[in-house]
Amino acid sequence: MRALLVVNPAATTTSARVRDVLAHALASDLKLDVAATEYRGHARDLARQAAEGGEIELVVALGGDGTVNEVVNGLLHNGPDPDRLPQLAVVPGGSTNVFARALGLPNDAVEATGALLDALHDQSSRTVGLGLVSGTPGTEDEGVPSRWFTFCAGLGFDAGVVGRVEQQRDQGKRSTHALYMRQVMRQFLAETHRRGGSITLERPDEDPVTGLVLAIVCNTAPWTYLGNRPVYASPEASFDTGLDLLGVSKMSTTSAMRYATQLLRSTPDRGPHGKHVASVHDLTDFTLHSQAPLPFQVDGDHLGLRTSATFTGVRRALRVIV
C-alpha cells in the first residue's frame, strides 16, 4: 500500500527523533512518502494532492486535531467518496487529540503507531460521519468557504475560549490544560451576553430555539479531554449518526458553576442538563444565527467572528484505519 505521512513538525507532544522513529516503523509496512508541513493549510494542500493524484491509498496524519482537520479537508475537497478516496489514519501528536482518542486509539504516538500497524495487518477500518459547516445563504457569511470538522464546532462562549488560547500560543505560551482553564475564566468575565444570549437554532419543520449564549456542535463523544478525563457535552453524539447540539441560554455565576461541575462529572450517559440547557440529538441540517458577531471555532481552530453558520451532518463521509 502506498501511503503519505503528513508530519506537523510543531506537534506538541512529539520530538523530531520520535517522529523519525515512527516514520521508519510505518515505512517497514508501507510504501511511504513523508511530507512535513511548512505553513498553516499545508496539510490540507498535501492531502488534496494525494486525493486527486490517484496513487496514494492512505494518508497518515501525525499531529494534533488541527493537523487532522486540515488533512480531512484536503481529502474531502471534492466531496466525500469513501470507496474512492484514500483512507485516513491518525497518529496523535497534539496536546488533546480528541479525534484520535474518540476513535479508541492510544494517546501515545508510539503506541498509536503500533495499533495502526496492527489495524493495517488486520485490514481493520471503519467509515465515519463528519460535520460540514458552510456560509448561510442570504447572510453576510454566505461566501465563507465550507469547512469539514471531525469532532466539534462552536459559536459563542467556547469559541471565545479557543480564540484566547490561540492568542496565548501566538505569544509563546504552551498549550496546557491550565492555560485553557485560565482562558475560560477570562472569557466568562468578559462575556457580555451571558444573561441573555443572541444565538438562535433553526431546524426544518421545528420551532426555533432562541436566546442561546453558546452553541456546541458535536460529531462524537467525548467533546474534549481534561488530561485523561473525558468531558461529555453531548453524550449521545456518535460518528455513526448526525450531529448533536448543546445550547445554554443563561450563564450567571451560579449557573456557570453548575454547568462546569456537570461537565467535569459528565459520563457517557449524562451531560449538562437543566432548564437553561437545550440538547438536540442526531441533526442532519440546521443553522445557527446570532444577532451580533460571535467567535466561531471548528475542531479547536478559531475562525474569527460569525453571525451565521449552516451545518450538515454527513454520514459515511470517510474511511479511517482503526
Results as ranks from 00 to 15, higher is better:
163 G>A: 11
173 K>I: 06
117 L>F: 03
165 V>N: 14
169 R>G: 07
175 S>A: 15
132 L>K: 13
198 S>Y: 02
151 F>Y: 15
151 F>W: 12
183 Q>H: 15
167 Q>T: 12
176 T>W: 02
159 A>G: 07
160 G>Y: 09
205 D>G: 02
122 D>C: 06
134 S>T: 15
167 Q>C: 07
135 G>L: 12
162 V>F: 07
183 Q>W: 12
165 V>Q: 15
149 F>E: 01
177 H>C: 02
157 F>W: 12
162 V>H: 06
128 V>T: 09
135 G>R: 13
173 K>A: 15
136 T>P: 02
159 A>P: 08
184 V>E: 06
201 L>E: 01
163 G>H: 04
164 R>W: 09
166 E>C: 07
148 W>I: 04
186 R>M: 07
171 Q>T: 00
170 D>F: 00
200 T>D: 00
139 T>C: 01
188 F>A: 05
185 M>A: 14
178 A>N: 05
129 G>V: 03
161 V>I: 12
116 L>I: 00
204 P>T: 00
196 G>H: 10
170 D>L: 09
180 Y>F: 14
149 F>Q: 05
137 P>M: 09
153 A>K: 01
129 G>Q: 10
143 G>P: 07
131 G>A: 10
171 Q>P: 07
184 V>K: 07
153 A>M: 03
119 A>K: 02
137 P>I: 04
126 R>E: 13
135 G>P: 10
167 Q>M: 14
195 R>S: 08
203 R>Y: 03
198 S>R: 06
184 V>T: 14
203 R>L: 11
201 L>G: 01
142 E>F: 00
200 T>Q: 03
139 T>L: 05
179 L>S: 06
205 D>L: 07
185 M>K: 03
133 V>H: 11
125 S>H: 12
166 E>W: 05
159 A>L: 03
170 D>K: 12
142 E>V: 11
204 P>I: 03
167 Q>P: 13
120 L>I: 06
208 P>E: 05
207 D>V: 02
179 L>M: 13
162 V>T: 14
206 E>C: 10
146 S>F: 11
192 T>C: 01
145 P>V: 09
177 H>Q: 11
176 T>Q: 11
186 R>A: 15
120 L>N: 06
122 D>P: 00
162 V>S: 04
130 L>C: 11
153 A>E: 02
130 L>M: 06
186 R>T: 15
174 R>T: 10
179 L>Q: 09
188 F>W: 08
155 L>I: 14
171 Q>G: 15
139 T>E: 01
172 G>R: 04
141 D>W: 08
123 Q>S: 11
124 S>H: 10
205 D>C: 07
160 G>D: 09
127 T>E: 08
201 L>P: 05
184 V>L: 15
